[in-house]
């Protein structure tokens, strides 16, 4: 069966959709991603759709589902690289992708994910806890 590869990159999962989607493929991606989030404890999912020419209501619903399911599993989802023609079409179709974060490209999407899951401040916290608490008052 056809599958879209999911890459693990640090605390995030990265998906680049390079093929024309049909419904079964999109549904497989949805279930694969959710089980990967569960298996890896990923804190974020980045989906690159820059090579996708068509997003119809079904595909839009799958993107929304992935975002809501991931959120329940404590991971944020960012969709990046949407083509302008796809964005225009989605809005006229009546699909606003509510609850799905978007960014212009992979780089900005990564930035957004880091901000959303606040990994940096969590790291700071652990460093601070390692230090002698009295030193911090200075």
């Amino acid at each position: 069966m056809d599958r879209i590869p999911i890459l693990k990159m640090g605390p995030f999962l990265l998906v680049t959709i390079q093929v024309d989607l049909y419904d079964r493929l999109a549904l497989n991606l949805e279930s694969d991603l959710i089980s990967m989030v569960s298996k890896t404890g990923a804190r974020g999912v980045l989906i690159d759709i820059s090579a996708v020419n068509i997003v119809d209501s079904f595909m839009g619903r799958i993107l929304g589902n992935i975002a809501s399911m991931s959120r329940i599993m404590d991971a944020e989802t960012v969709v990046v690289g949407m083509q302008p023609a796809v964005a225009i079409t989605l809005v006229e179709l009546g699909l606003t992708l509510q609850g799905v974060y978007t960014a212009l490209n992979v780089e900005k999407g990564m930035e957004l994910l880091y901000k959303k899951v606040d990994l940096l401040s969590e790291q700071d916290d652990t460093i601070e806890e390692d230090q002698d608490p009295h030193d911090i008052t200075d």
């Binding site: 020419n53 068509i54 119809d56 083509q83 302008p84 023609a85 079409t89």
Partner: peptide
């Protein structure tokens, strides 16, 4: 099927936005 529609739309010189609208409607 979507590819065939795109082919025809390209052949008559339809713009990318209009192609995308047509193919999305066809897909629905």
């Amino acid at each position: 099927f979507r590819n065939r529609v795109r082919e025809l739309a390209t052949k008559i010189g339809m713009s990318l936005v209009n192609q995308t609208k047509l193919i999305t409607a066809a897909s629905e």
